[in-house]
Design a protein around this nucleic acid. Structure first.
Lengths: 230, 230
DNA sequence: TCATAATCGAACCAACCGGTACGATAAAGC
DNA sequence: GCTTTATCGTACCGGTTGGTTCGATTATGA
């Protein structure tokens, strides 16, 4: 939408100087705007009905693209789906690393981290993605595994890094850093994330709710791992 | 399998005394053994491919039942699926209430509870069920919600009850019992359940792993909520 | 203005879907 | 034995699927 191509998009087939066409227009399946348009429509459909129950015709209609064109940009239904999941998974926790770079006391950092985590993980969009991916793990294991790896584990990694530093500085006493990171991530969503995933709760948590959850989680976490004054 | 019919199975169509047939054999779709046989085959199929990608023909083949018979026992694909989910959800945490009835100190109870929880929640069978259900929440919200309600919340309820008693006895100080119950449930599976759900981990945790997780969770939980000696 | 080619749009394909119909089979009760 | 009937097996139905094909259209760049 807001992002126009902006890149030059050379024709790629004319290596070795054997130029035949000198057109600067986008090659057959390489207009990033059109690609984005397709992905957007596809996302809409897959989110509503999941992988199997979404037909390629629906996707065409939703994306406003002819079927022929669709199959120029993506070879397969699976190909399209995987591209979608990849995009979503990469976008999901974009800002989270930067967040921990700030110079703040541990408690504050945990609060910020926790807030963002609940907000993202329990948002409509992410919940729906997670449902679809979970539902298809059995048939496309690598897709699920990569989804988890990039989204959840990257998270844990940056949190673990923070905890590592705090541990080295002697401010906390954590026997198993990775476990602790997981525990915090899990604590912060206690009671809502699962409910959201299975549709028991139809709306994301309010900011007040988030605050309660995060404060409780941080308190619990620090009480367990912070070095006592004594 | 092991359970033979054993119930009398009256014909239901012969109310008002207008008896025509006096057969004691099972009515058209009422043999519980056959029903179980169908459910077992269906489970196998659904577990492998999910709801949409499982065809009724496959189910027939896997169950060793003709299509006609299948449609005598279940009116629909959805009907069959819902019966399956209902069975699975009810079976999932069968023994968990009894577990907390024992007369043991809180710490021991939490350990027992936690162990069972991880074991069940991360087992192949349950993980697969959860994937399928999660994947279909968008189109069958009530199924997902009931699945969660019965499985997860029943759990939390019995745990909450325990905590309530301990709180009344003055041994713990818990501001929000339900939250605390959720936190414990979440803590106990930290780092593996999600990984299992998304297929990042292909095997359930070993007993050693479970022990580590549970011990850490219990310690953390008690440090946060147990009343201090001082 | 004109040639080029990306896109459109609609027809088309074989395969399969969920579900039904119905005669053949076989097991149960008299 | 005979009758009853639950189950079987298969053919069948209309509809949809993922994917292909191809001429018409339209925007581009020289």
């Amino acid at each position: 939408m807001a992002e126009k191509p902006a890149n030059t998009s050379r024709c790629e087939g004319d290596a070795a100087g054997k130029v035949k066409t000198r057109y600067r227009r986008h090659a057959a399946g390489e207009d990033p705007a059109k690609r984005g348009q397709i992905l957007k429509g596809a996302m809409q459909c897959f989110m509503e009905n999941g992988f199997d129950a979404t037909s390629m015709n629906e996707v065409c209609r939703a994306a406003g693209v002819s079927k022929g064109t669709l199959y120029v940009y993506f070879t397969d239904k699976v190909d399209l789906f995987e591209a979608l999941v990849a995009e979503e998974r990469d976008r999901m926790f974009e800002g989270i690393e930067a967040l921990l770079k700030q110079d703040l006391p541990l408690r504050e950092k945990l609060v910020l981290f926790g807030r963002l985590m609940v907000e993202v993980l329990c948002s409509d969009r992410v919940i729906r993605s997670q449902r679809i991916v979970a539902g298809i793990v059995e048939r496309m294991p690598e897709v699920g595994a990569r989804f988890y790896d990039v989204a959840a584990r990257r998270n844990n990694a940056s949190l673990a890094e923070l905890l590592e530093r705090e541990s080295a500085a002697g401010r906390v006493d954590i026997p198993d850093i990775d476990l602790a990171a997981s525990q915090f991530s899990e604590l912060v969503c206690a009671g809502i994330w699962r409910a959201r995933l299975f549709g028991k709760r139809e709306t994301p948590p309010s900011t007040a709710e988030i605050e309660t959850l995060v404060q409780s989680a941080v308190a619990m976490f620090l009480r367990a791992y912070e070095k006592h004054a004594g």
